[in-house]
Design a protein around this nucleic acid. Structure first.
Lengths: 197, 197
DNA sequence: CGAAGGGAGTAGACACCGTCTACTCCTCTC
DNA sequence: GAGAGGAGTAGACGGTGTCTACTCCCTTCG
């Protein structure tokens, strides 16, 4: 029994369609009319549930945030890394984050469009707080003497920057290579200290 | 004597107009027709110099990159920081970067739109290489034992992430505060080592 | 000196977009 | 069984990027 995802409920169907569309054809395909078309309704139909195109995009992006949060939580809790090694858990978290951004480039792009972020009726930004909370807790374990929120913020910003610049090919040009691994290691070492330390 | 910026040369005038427009009214105002209107020509005129809207945007963004590079070079070379203290120079560089992103939000947004980056006839990405070169050299001085290109790449990604997430208000929510200073310090300390170290 | 030619910008058409509004059903209720 | 309201349709509107036909005007050459 599911929550009526494909039965009635055009609202959910529009979001589902949008998620599928952005993964298949990129963020540029998320036209209001294209989403409606792809969902098999007229272009005016979404308006009953989303007063504006941006609000529909915001709802789609929210799916991205909750999806990423769920993957991260699952990877950290039941992942291969020992539950007692927060440093390893942060490494897993970082890789889940970058992997998500790489596999869902269009969705990631959508999630961090500032006009989308500023649109949602209920702030879209808040949706990323659970993920950031996980990050902060783990940072607090690894570097108890630091200000965990600040370090976690810096680390998050670093992951975000790598995700974008690498995803768009700018960083490959700069560091000269196609392997993102050294970069990930450098980022983790920078904010959390080197493993051997 | 200047290079005929406002005399003939609609091409340069369009870029100038675009730069002014994006600073005054944001990236959303950079419509092809709006740029043409604002430059006092018909909407078909730009097509002679820029076959596509994206290529005009790319030319405008290139101005942003060269402008940022010039500011950075000037700040590093003749800035208040001693020329023999690469760590201090990197701090200046970071602040110039973040200040630019904050003061020219629309331009910065434009500069890192992936469709714009991928558009330019001559790769737009290469325009940021001088800036990255400065970064790499300074990093090589501060941390000679590291792989400078990788550390510089990680640092750049971090600055980019802070610029975006802070500029859009997401990081304030996460770290809980309106002061970006602690974050900058944390980023510099993370990648370059603490000053007191 | 005059005509040919091409660069430079204009103007209109086209398809598509987001929004708005009038309208049709279809179902539920009294 | 009739009325009402929710849900989706369909068309109009202004705006956008691209494309194309056209008008100037200046240069060049016969």
């Amino acid at each position: 029994m599911q929550t009526d995802s494909s039965g009635g409920g055009l609202r959910d169907r529009l979001i589902d369609t949008g998620v599928a569309l952005v993964d298949a054809r990129g963020a540029a395909a998320l036209t209001l009319r294209e989403i409606a078309r792809s969902a098999g309704v007229s272009h005016g139909a979404p308006r009953r549930y989303f007063p504006t195109h941006l609000e529909l995009l915001s709802a789609i992006a929210r799916r991205g945030f909750t999806d990423l949060g769920a993957r991260a939580a699952q990877a950290v809790q039941s992942g291969g890394a020992g539950a007692d090694d927060p440093r390893a858990q942060l490494a897993v978290l970082a890789r889940v984050y970058l992997d998500f951004a790489a596999r869902h480039r269009g969705m990631y792009e959508l999630m961090f469009r500032h006009d989308v972020l500023e649109s949602g009726t209920l702030g879209l930004r808040e949706t990323s707080l659970p993920l950031f909370g996980m990050l902060t807790e783990l940072v607090a374990s690894v570097r108890p003497k630091s200000e965990p929120a600040v370090v976690a913020g810096a680390l998050w910003a670093n992951l975000h920057g790598v995700a974008q610049l690498w995803g768009w090919g700018s960083l490959q040009l700069a560091v000269g290579g196609d392997d993102v691994e050294p970069l990930i290691t450098a980022v983790l070492d920078a904010h959390l200290g080197q493993v051997s330390r």
